[in-house]
Design a protein around this nucleic acid. Structure first.
Ligand SMILES: [Zn+2]
Ligand SMILES: [Zn+2]
Length: 728
DNA sequence: GCCAACGTTGGC
DNA sequence: GCCAACGTTGGC
């Protein structure tokens, strides 16, 4: 999918050329090109990938000098219709400019045009010809008002830190006396030591704050086997110490202290009267507009707007609007009122998922039977109790809350993924990380560390290439990855079967984040990640929700490992793909079921049928292809080799004709295969729409008769019993 | 509609 | 100061 096969992790500490401080730009374009050029691509194209249009004009379209403000944003107010989404208010003008530019020059443009990309860059020739610099004031979040300085290299590298700058410079310039923030050299001058007024936030404070302490990189450790330039990302990451020692420690920023006075523990901006205006250093600030705060009426400089970006809002009012609640504590609506619970003892936290069974029991464990708060780490976690005080003010916390919720909700802090401290080092997101030699394009948390409950679905582990490989039953080559599996326990089942209710909660964006992720409700679109397994729900019924499906990790080169636990109360004890190579090692020879299982494993089996052994023992054969019309069908074989077929966990009626066509006991591979092949003649009964559609929903819910056959001949999509129910 | 890409923020 | 990684954009 991406270019990682051509990127080798860099042993040692020195970043290679491609890895320019995490902002590699050399191979951004189509992967075909990249594949042809495993070594850094020619600079012109690299530049085109990330250079600004403005820069192109300057460097390539010689002679054309656009007006100074050619790419300058119009007034933010001009884009009122773009209410949300950060800087989108500016994208229009930029996009328009880009079109114009394209039209005139027919240059290949960067793949993407980010609105801020071309804006606000100042020539910064002190670093060399073509260098640019820009300051960006944070517009939201608890660090609002903070300024970030970026540099843009002539090649288009967007540099975010001193370390990156040094890396990008590749020694072309001695930066030992360069102050990153101010962008100036202090040759021979002794810089006053900048005093940090801001008290360092304590771990405790942090962990009980709104921030989900787990959600951040927070010590995502690097597996040793993958260690490249960053052996560890612990709290004391020494990776950059050599830079800091040579520069950061002795070299200092401009002497003007822009930190809040002592006692101000958060980073909210100070009133403009006491705080330096957002513009600094003359030339930088000179382009800022003088604005009048729509709230308090004071004049201020900069680009501060309310959340809708419609009206100017001075930093002070920004702060005021945020301080209605503690900026570091969020509450969320929900049952119970406890805001914080002690977190699982840290020493129970796995470094990685080591095997399938550890993951299998995840949801049982997530009940946290042991909540020792005496642990040395004593983590706490926000349980997301939301008070959701609706705010009338439109610069207000409504958006702010939304923003915060969105920003903060992707980690429950409790699930195994959240508690996992180590990056796997092999998933696509890990491979993208600079510390693993990646180019930092995706910038996402390790898939295995994505919260099982709250992470966005597309970030969860999944089977890369699933769709290419599974329909035809081909398994990917390569060493099997550890599969993690788990079964949901009966609480899940209970909640579903006891009610006729249809729970379509797609919890991705609502507040139901206390329960485990609801895998089975998502069926829209082409990408349904059921924590890995993409299952097509034939029928959004309660029955579906009782399906208990779980698939292994989503590592790009992983062999799909499927484990499906149909029976909620039976832990999976053995997981085998029928197509998998026989594993070495002995099984329980005495167990005849196991013998059958092993025979099955070494036999050619119908496509996408997998076998697992669950406690009982019980041998289960599961159709794991979502494309299959039998995708929710399971054959259960008990130790006496009697079997039962279930569809979406519903057993077929004993009178089902299927049972007449096949032996009552499945004692051999032949018999098993015969049944599985015979099943292919069936499809799952679709059910029929109710007579009275749901009032408040545009969903079409299909219902089945209680005597539904579940499996019907392929030519019929609905069984006779369901038809009878509708009088058909 | 998907997802690569990346601007941006959180937090040590 | 640094960087992990969140959330969004926009090309395809
Ligand atoms: Zn990973
Ligand atoms: Zn979690």
């Amino acid at each position: 999918m991406n270019e990682e096969p051509l990127k080798t992790p860099v042993p040692g500490g020195a970043p290679v050329e491609q890895v320019v401080g995490g902002q590699s730009i050399q191979k951004i374009n189509a992967k075909a090109e990249w594949i042809c050029e495993p070594t850094p691509a020619p600079k012109p194209r690299a530049a085109l990938n990330s250079v600004t249009a403005q820069e192109l004009l300057g460097s390539e379209a010689a002679g054309f000098e656009p007006p100074v403000d050619w790419f300058e944003p119009l007034e933010d107010d001009d884009y009122d219709n773009e209410s949300l989404a950060g800087e989108s208010e500016r994208s229009e003008s930029v996009a328009g400019s880009e079109k114009l530019f394209k039209k005139i020059y027919k240059f290949p443009m960067p793949r993407r045009k980010r609105s801020q990309r071309d804006e606000g860059w100042d020539q910064w020739s002190i670093l060399g010809e073509g260098w640019k610099r820009k300051e960006v004031v944070r517009r939201s979040g608890s660090s609002i008002g903070q300024k970030d300085v970026y540099y843009l290299s002539p090649r288009g590298d967007r540099v975010r830190s001193r370390v990156e700058l040094i890396s990008v410079m590749e020694g072309q310039l001695d930066l030992s006396t360069f102050d990153y923030k101010s962008g100036k050299f202090y040759n021979g001058e002794v810089q006053p030591v900048r005093i940090r007024h801001r008290a360092k936030r304590k771990v405790r404070e942090r962990s009980s704050s709104e921030s989900s302490w787990m959600e951040r990189g927070d010590g995502a450790d690097t597996p040793d086997s993958h260690t490249t330039s960053t052996p560890s990302l612990g709290p004391k990451n020494l990776q950059t110490s050599r830079f800091l020692n040579s520069a950061g420690g002795t070299l200092n920023k401009d002497s003007r202290d822009e930190h809040p006075p002592a006692g101000e523990t958060n980073k909210l901006p100070l009133p403009s009267s006491s705080r330096p205006l957002p513009s600094i250093n003359g030339e930088i600030g000179s382009e800022d507009d003088i604005l009048v705060c729509a709230r308090c009426g004071i004049s201020f400089t900069g680009t501060w707007y309310d959340k809708q970006r419609k009206r100017p809002c001075c930093p002070n009012c920004w702060a005021a609007s945020k301080s209605k609640e503690h900026p570091l504590i969020r509450f969320r609506k929900g049952p119970g009122s406890a805001a914080f619970v002690p977190q699982k003892p840290y020493n129970d936290i796995p470094d990685v998922y080591e095997d399938s069974l550890s993951f299998q029991s995840e949801f049982a464990e997530s009940q946290h039977p042991s909540l020792k708060s005496s642990d040395t780490e004593n983590f706490s976690v926000n349980v997301d109790v939301d008070v959701d005080d609706d705010d009338d003010d439109d610069m207000s916390t409504d958006d702010d809350d939304d923003w915060h919720k969105k920003r903060k909700r992707r980690a429950c802090g409790e699930c195994k993924a959240c508690l996992c401290r180590k990056d796997c080092g092999t998933c696509d997101f890990c491979v993208d990380k600079p510390k693993f030699g990646g180019s930092n394009k995706k910038r996402q948390k390790c898939r295995l560390r994505q919260c099982q409950r709250q992470a966005m679905r597309h970030l969860l582990p999944y089977q890369k290439g699933l769709r290419q490989h599974w329909p035809d039953g081909q398994l990917l080559p390569g060493r099997p990855r550890p599969h993690y599996t788990y079964s949901r326990k009966s609480d899940f089942k209970k909640s579903r079967e006891s009610q006729d209710g249809l729970d379509f909660t797609d919890n991705e964006d609502d507040d139901c984040n206390i329960k485990p992720i609801n895998w089975t409700t998502a069926s829209a679109g082409g990408s349904t990640y059921l924590f890995g397994l993409d299952v097509k729900n034939q029928l959004p019924s309660t029955q579906l929700d009782t399906m208990d499906l779980q698939l292994a990790n989503g590592l790009p080169d992983g062999v799909p490992h499927i484990s499906v636990n149909h029976n909620n109360s039976k832990p999976i004890t053995q997981i085998f793909s029928l197509a998998e190579n026989p594993p070495s090692g002995g099984a329980d020879i005495d167990n005849q079921l196991m013998t059958l299982l092993q025979s099955l494993r070494s036999s050619a089996m119908p496509i996408m049928w997998y076998a697992i052994m669950v406690e009982g023992p019980q041998l289960q054969l599961i159709q794991c292809s979502k494309q299959s019309s039998l995708s929710d069908t399971i054959v259960l074989i008990d130790p006496g080799f009697c079997y039962q077929v279930t569809v979406q966990k519903q057993p077929l009626l004993p009178t089902h004709p299927l049972y007449d066509r096949y032996p009552a006991r499945l004692t051999s591979v032949t018999e098993v295969v015969g049944l599985l092949l015979g099943l292919e003649d069936y499809v799952v009964c679709q059910g029929l729409p109710p007579k009275e559609p749901l009032s408040d929903s545009n969903l079409i819910i299909l219902e089945r008769a209680s005597t539904c056959d579940f499996l019907v001949n392929k030519k019929v999509s609905v069984c006779t019993n369901c038809k009878a129910l509708r009088g058909l």
